[in-house]
Design a protein around this nucleic acid. Structure first.
Lengths: 346, 346
DNA sequence: AATTTTTATGTAATCGATTGCAGATTTTAT
DNA sequence: ATAAAATCTGCAATCGATTACATAAAAATT
């Protein structure tokens, strides 16, 4: 491996000091235009490249940020990450992506690894199954490493977050079903200790109450965001004495499972039962029977989270303020819930 | 931010030198059992954590590796990355993920950024649209930064790779279609300057030639791995005077598009036309009409790529050997290509 | 012309951990 | 008891870049 040229090499060549080279290269202090030019030309000539590690050690900044998500193979998270990258790259930051696979232990491990890797901040969406133990978050907070939640947040004093208005998303989706004439609307929920799922549940409930329909708690089932879980849960619902005629799912994946189960049972969608999902995953659009879903503008969410991070990291750490950004979701109506057939825009 | 404790702090407390502390902590040289114990206890007590940046500077290793993929929101790449992570984490490495979105410029930028971030190696799947310009790869090679290709590789002397036998995957898939009695099998190809697509094409062609069927080049169309592209291309095929009765697609996404187009045209799958994809993306299994596809064991691929990296990075750089690992693909037969209906295992 | 101000550069410490060499201490051998 | 060997620990340089402070040189001021 050819040795890299350092500022000392440049200094020696020009018979000046490394300090001067450093200053010239950073354009900072008062360096004569002549030497500045000379240095930068020589630097280019010698193929100089700044050693980020040395700089990181000196400045205490690694220019790495950690991003922790439950998983990356969902379009939603992949898109949020993309948004984060787009916003952070121009500022010289790199993104280290970690997956929790919804396991608290992995989440904790990830945080420790990132801390260990000297990241300048952590942007994350918490995993399910929070056991009330906030030790790992506290580790971040204690070290004063900026922490920003996106989508799946935890209410911690002083911690900023970027989320969507899940209540409204759920409310709109449910309202849409009611407007279509459905009367017995079930809800495939998820771990409601996670705020987003709690809010989706509350939005759903409120829409039903507001419409004058009867709210039936037995139509709410908690499950996991997996296709097969959706099937299983739907099966239970179909076996009820008085089965639902519509389903609002807090996840597109469970919605998909529900649809499979419904079709298998011989019922028609949306004539007999209607289904609405959440997240607007690409497959909801591509299915032959396209699925109505709630869009969460993930790229935007990522960008905003990144912006909040940049603000915090560049803050003169006088006042530490907490920022809560809330995006507005958009209901995308497709075949799976539309009784009056219209030309479906794919 | 509370200042972190360093080995100097520990040294001061114990009235010894930082050197001793360092050695004691690293368990390495000859340090008396007594001090070793004392040091590690004090370290724990003082909440000592090694500063990775300093270590990185000293050792010249960052313990970061870059992973470059066209995109992360496909199950295939996400899974490869997961395999890489699983293999690398236990060795203290972190993974920096970059996406090229199949743009050569982004690919080059990513490589430079990673180089700049002092990564210890780069594992990558090249983007489409290679313009024959290998400058960015050469930059890596010149700096002696280990480079390992997975899946989409480029033949460069001395560079290791982990791929699957795309020829065989395509051959098996096509053979399966022939065995099912299809006679006019089209192929949705992709940029054939990329080896995997070239090999899939060749496997397809060979299977047809071996079977004695006529090989018709007009049934091969080059497109992009996107659902909508699949639709467009399928449309063209269906408009042919003598339309195909089966399609082997080099991508699950184009296969999906093709299926949509076929259904819209009123033809039945697999009775009238059959479709086979490539990659075994989860949706191929979840579709109501499940799609036959070729599994590439992505997690395994990721692990192997990581292992090759570890070997190279730990190599005493005497002999630089090139390693070509080739995995065997597996054809997963589902409804979209099975004329004799059987119970489909979902 | 002498003094002050400005400008440009050098000196040396610093970030935190590692390591070759040397010196000190203990153990073993003669 | 003395020399030789083995064991442990300290000294100081090193990785590469940054920066407060000092100083030299040039420009401006009186």
């Amino acid at each position: 491996m050819k040795k890299k040229t350092t500022i000392y090499d440049i200094a020696k060549r020009l018979n000046i000091t490394a300090a001067t080279v450093s200053r010239a290269l950073n354009g900072n202090s008062k360096i004569s235009e002549a030497t500045r030019k000379l240095v930068s030309e020589t630097a280019k000539e010698m193929n100089y490249e700044q050693n980020k590690l040395a700089q990181a050690l000196k400045s205490g900044k690694s220019y790495n940020v950690g991003v922790i998500v439950p998983r990356i193979d969902s379009n939603f998270f992949a898109s949020v990450i993309r948004g984060i990258e787009e916003e952070l790259y121009p500022h010289g930051y790199h993104v280290i992506i970690c997956q929790t696979h919804d396991q608290k232990t992995l989440e904790t491990e990830n945080i420790n690894s990132l801390l260990n890797a000297q990241v300048d901040g952590v942007l994350m969406s918490i995993s399910n199954a929070q056991n009330g133990n906030d030790d790992s978050f506290n580790a971040l907070i204690k070290k004063n490493v900026p922490l920003i939640f996106f989508d799946r947040k935890k209410d911690i004093k002083g911690i900023s977050s970027v989320t969507i208005d899940d209540f409204k998303g759920a409310y709109d989706a449910t309202k849409h079903l009611i407007d279509q004439g459905y009367k017995r609307i079930a809800h495939l929920s998820n771990d409601r200790s996670i705020l987003i799922f709690k809010n989706r549940y509350l939005g759903y409930k409120q829409a039903i109450l507001d419409s004058g329909l009867e709210f039936d708690e037995s139509l709410v089932i908690e499950t996991h965001s997996k296709v097969l879980e959706g099937r299983k849960t739907m099966k239970k619902l179909l076996e009820m004495k008085h089965r639902p005629d519509a389903v609002f799912s807090s996840s597109d994946f469970t919605a998909l499972g529900a649809i499979q189960e419904i079709k298998e049972s011989g019922l028609r969608i949306p004539e007999d039962i209607s289904v609405v999902g959440f997240s607007n995953e690409p497959f909801t659009r591509f299915m032959e029977l396209s699925i109505t879903s709630v869009d969460q503008s993930p790229i935007e969410m990522g960008k905003l989270a990144a912006q909040v991070f940049l603000e915090e990291v560049n803050n003169d750490k006088r006042v530490k303020s907490e920022k809560q950004v809330v995006l507005t979701p958009e209901l995308i109506i497709r075949k799976s819930s539309l009784r009056t057939p219209i030309t479906d825009k794919v």
